[in-house]
Design a protein around this nucleic acid. Sequence first.
DNA 1: GATCTGACTATCT
DNA 2: AAGATAGCCAGAT
Length: 115
Amino acid sequence: MKKQNNKNLFNKVYKIVRDVPKGKVTTYGDISMRLSSEVGVPSKRWARMVGFALHANTDSHTPCHRVVNKEGRIAPGFAFGGPDEQRKRLEAEGVRFLDRTHVDLQKHAISIHSS
DNA sequence: GATCTGACTATCT
DNA sequence: AAGATAGCCAGAT
């Protein structure tokens, strides 16, 4: 056994993202906090890994479009084929957009603390 | 094995 | 308030 922790980290990200209900969005910060719970450290350190994990798995069946940064902003243009695509998906799920790139976190940001 | 990069966040200017 | 810089970790080159 060694540091398969790292892989678990990615795996957790996918799992959490998939656990996000439709019409809801989660933030890198929240996921990071969840991960930090496992490792036992403060949050923001894994924020990048979360984004990385999603980017590494974008074409997978992971609803990365439900993952936004702490501002509720979607990916600038690296996503699926354009932030417009991601926005469309979220809107289709019932997510209210405050801006072309910002979702209504106050309404859709779910906190996935403890299972 | 060393260095750069990156879908982030927080802080400083 | 908006832009630039720093700090973090893991992956890719």
